[in-house]
Amino acid sequence: MMICHCMAITDGDIRRAVDWMRAADPDTIITPGKVYRALGKRADCGGCLPRFVDTLKGCDKFEVPMELRGLRRDMTQGVTDEGRRKGN
């Protein structure tokens, strides 16, 4: 199925890119931007991004590696000021 008409990207293209990226680096976090770059393309109008992300989520190898899950939550746990300065 055609996902992005502007760049002529199909769901098969996305799945193959995800499989290739996961095989190349099992610990990588796969993002839409990385998939576009792997395909040698870029987002144009952005109208396809909701369908693009849904297709990514449907890929078997899209998951975040187990050792990276919850990483952001652990880094900020207990921090209340988010690193902001106290004054103006």
Rank of each mutant, 00 (worst) to 15 (best):
D25N: 11
M75V: 06
K57L: 11
G46D: 03
G70R: 07
R73D: 09
G87S: 02
G33N: 13
K57V: 03
Q77E: 12
H5I: 04
T28F: 02
C45M: 12
L39A: 06
D19H: 06
M66S: 15
E82P: 04
R51Q: 04
T10C: 06
Q77K: 14
M75C: 07
T28Y: 00
R37F: 03
D44Y: 13
L71P: 00
D11T: 05
T28P: 01
P26R: 04
R37I: 02
M1V: 03
P32Q: 11
E82W: 15
M1A: 09
R22G: 03
P65E: 06
R42M: 10
R73K: 09
F52W: 03
G47K: 04
Y36A: 02
A43W: 00
G46R: 07
V64W: 07
R51Y: 04
D44L: 12
T80A: 13
W20S: 07
C45A: 14
K61G: 05
D81R: 13
A38D: 01
R16M: 01
C48E: 05
K57R: 10
M75S: 00
V79Q: 14
R42L: 08
D19Q: 13
T31C: 13
H5E: 04
C6M: 05
G58A: 08
M66K: 15
R73T: 10
G87Q: 02
L49Y: 11
R51D: 03
D60H: 09
G40Q: 10
P65Q: 02
M7A: 15
E63P: 04
R85M: 06
P65M: 06
D19L: 12
Y36G: 00
I29T: 14
Q77G: 11
L71M: 09
C4W: 09
T76Q: 13
G40E: 08
F62Q: 03
T76G: 14
G83F: 14
D54N: 11
T10W: 03
D25R: 09
A24F: 02
M7N: 10
L56I: 05
C4Y: 06
G83W: 12
T55D: 04
G83D: 10
R37M: 01
D11Q: 13
A8Q: 14
P26Y: 02
T28A: 11
K86S: 12
D44H: 11
R15C: 05
T80M: 12
D60S: 14
I30H: 07
I30G: 07
I29K: 13
R85A: 07
G58V: 00
R72N: 07
R72L: 12
